[in-house]
Design a protein around this nucleic acid. Structure first.
Lengths: 209, 209
DNA sequence: GTAAAAACTTTTATGCAATAAAATATTTTG
DNA sequence: CAAAATATTTTATTGCATAAAAGTTTTTAC
């Protein structure tokens, strides 16, 4: 059984994160003060700091929760039929962007991306990176399936390919949130251009077969 | 001729940036206050804010200067013989990492990356992105040369390929500076894995030829 | 069941970034 | 040289972040 202390702590964590979520949505990130969050969560401002270190830490915690939901649904929501790899990647990127926009505004996502970098090494930042890894595994599994179906050369290392593709997708996602002007469609085009170019290089063009 | 005002302004800018550079190197980023920089540059703290907006803005200005030097030397310093694309990319990544480490410590680079995102849209952030674009053009030009030499298929779009490769390299660079533990060699291996996997996909394997 | 110990939260205080408005100084222009 | 324009500095305020001290509540052990 969990002690009373542990339950109280868990409860405060939940109150802080859910209060922050509401306030960020209502007032925006900058205009929400830690004190605002603390009052809404019925704790002191210092407690918020004790729990999450920084205001960005609270934001990260909130994003991590939401990303867990994304991961739980993502694989299922992607097309089940075997398409080509580019179609797969576009579908993947589209879902990630859609989920991001549903959760928070772009300017808040910019704070998230910045926090992951500045707070590198902290538990929250590590947790975020772990979720990124899980996202890349969604790709890896699809790639393995394509190999089994003969749609992709057996020589390809699915883990390496999945990770590379995720990095690329993530870079374009950051471009997406970095400007209020850039649309999802534009990012999809850029990603498609990336993939077509990369897949046209064909390292083994001369040497094999 | 430039007015006295313009020259004084330019002078203050230089004093601020070079004072900041020294202080960041000596005391680290966090322990350097804007007031420290202001005193060393013989201006008021508010003037530093007026010029660069934020402490991170001063840092960005300083990095931009240093990156301009990198770009001026980069193309020349890369191997001139025609090698394969993977060798080219590794050489490119290696020089960028070496230059970064020569300029600032990793933890300060983390502040740079964060600032580029949070200050997206500001002149300084745009200037930084422009330099990234110039870096990607170094790749584009090399790719064009390889095409001319017949080392790469003519069907490949050099602009798209160069940009895609730069994105990938940049993502791995961010991984590099995000942890004090990760070595240049590890990043080179990851990048090589990325490229081998991506270049093994061969979009046209069945359809063409 | 209760007293001592342990674990947390809150209070209090301080330094610094960021921003705005008012005051002051310097350059430019006519 | 004086008025106007342009900058910088001074002054003041808010909020993030952090540390130490004080105060509470839960646990543990008798």
């Amino acid at each position: 059984m969990s002690t009373l202390r542990a339950r109280q702590k868990e409860d405060r964590r939940n109150r802080i994160v859910s209060s922050a979520k509401t306030l960020f949505k209502d007032k925006g990130y900058d205009k929400t003060t830690i004190e605002n969050i603390a009052v809404a969560a019925e704790v002191s401002g210092v407690t918020v700091h004790n729990y999450y270190g920084t205001k960005a830490g609270v934001l990260l915690a909130l994003v991590i929760e939401s990303d867990k939901q994304l991961i739980a649904q993502l694989d299922e929501s992607m097309p089940h039929e075997q398409g080509d790899l580019i179609t797969l990647m576009i579908a993947f990127a589209r879902r990630i962007m859609a989920h991001a926009i549903k959760t928070l505004e772009k300017d808040i996502w910019r704070q998230v991306i910045a926090a992951v970098t500045t707070e590198a090494g902290t538990p929250l930042s590590k947790a975020y990176s772990k979720l990124d890894e899980q996202l890349s595994f969604v790709l890896v599994r699809r790639i393995e399936a394509m190999q089994a179906a003969g749609t992709l050369p057996g020589a390809v290392n699915p883990l390496h390919l999945g990770r590379a593709l995720f990095q690329l997708q993530n870079a374009r996602f950051i471009e997406f949130i970095s400007s209020d002007q850039v649309t999802q469609d534009e990012i999809e085009t850029r990603l498609r251009n990336d993939l077509v170019a990369l897949f046209s290089v064909c390292i083994d063009q001369a040497h094999s077969a």
